[in-house]
Design a protein around this nucleic acid. Sequence first.
DNA 1: AACCTTACATACCACGCGGAATGTTGCAAG
DNA 2: CTTGCAACATTCCGCGTGGTATGTAAGGTT
Lengths: 206, 206
Amino acid sequence: MPRVRDPKRTRRKVLEASYREFYRHGFQGGSINRIVTAAGITKGALFHHFAGKNELGYAVLDEFLTPAVNNWWVEPLHDAGDPVQALRNILKRFLKRIEEEDPEAGFLFNGCPICNLAVEMSPLDEGFRERLGTIYDTWHCAISEALERGQATAVVRSDINPTAEASFLVSIMAGSASVGKVTQQMAFFRNCIKVAQIHVESLVPS
Amino acid sequence: MPRVRDPKRTRRKVLEASYREFYRHGFQGGSINRIVTAAGITKGALFHHFAGKNELGYAVLDEFLTPAVNNWWVEPLHDAGDPVQALRNILKRFLKRIEEEDPEAGFLFNGCPICNLAVEMSPLDEGFRERLGTIYDTWHCAISEALERGQATAVVRSDINPTAEASFLVSIMAGSASVGKVTQQMAFFRNCIKVAQIHVESLVPS
DNA sequence: AACCTTACATACCACGCGGAATGTTGCAAG
DNA sequence: CTTGCAACATTCCGCGTGGTATGTAAGGTT
């Protein structure tokens, strides 16, 4: 029998259950009642830790999704000497991850959790829009700045536009996840990543 | 004073109001009550023409969004002799259209209506998933088949993969709309389309 | 030992939802 | 002229929702 009083753990359980609930049903379609049931706690506990449904959504963004983007994209790109090699690794690692996932709960079925919230909530709530904007901006900057550094050390072609290329890469990730969850075909997803990989290769000087 | 009894017109008004409502609030967040108010009719009239909320969403897909894709992509590509020129025209026309739109109600603020529904409803309802899958499939096929015809007449490079290129183009359109509605910057959207245009140019034999 | 704050649990609430049941009226066929 | 059905309008309903008010107990502080 675990400790009765454990606020950190309780908060964590709520956040994890919320993430899953919103991931599957969307934010508006997500149910507080289902969250408390899944987390094995009560509504009183939830509203003790979070002021309301919106704040719960914000917390999922701040404490789950922002770190995920940092893990997958920002840090690898920041640490890398050669940005093209870093992008190669990221795309490869990403594709592998998806293929290993549980098809019922993973990326191919449910899409990108960030993109899902962005599509649903950006026009409806400024708090969501702002946070999601920051996430995409961080992501975007990580790519474009890495490409600029690559241009400075001549490992990236000087005649490409880092900003446009970054926009392109972010869009492809979001778009392929969105369309992929409709077609339910890994092949579609793989095709998109493949073209993205080819495009990345075209960034290295000939 | 208009004709009191006009089922065709009534049905149309309901569909148009539903399209706008779902476009702004999503399907789950969309309200039947708001729809009947906006359409200037009553709930009785709505449920006389449509069996339920889901059927209403299906009708929006079948009678609004499917024709829109046909208009913008399928027919131009089918009629064209040179698929690359057709894609050039489509992208240009599309960008122009968005720049002219009302910022409060248009593509940049609300995203792509098809992609929005796809992201929200695909994992939740098979009826939505099926219809959206058909739309994306038609769209995808229109591009890939046009590219294949272009390869046959040597106006498209023979060493590119039409299927992969089609997947890529569809994804870019969906992704740029999704991310664009977060950043709210036309520049982001324009960057994506620009890279897509460059990519399209790379399809023509050198 | 008394106390007080934090961390929950329980019970309850108003509201808007999608939808059904029923009532009413225009309009065309017989 | 009347009959009948399609095309609505009106009214009502059960339910799940996000959120609150209140109760209670754990555990550190003094």
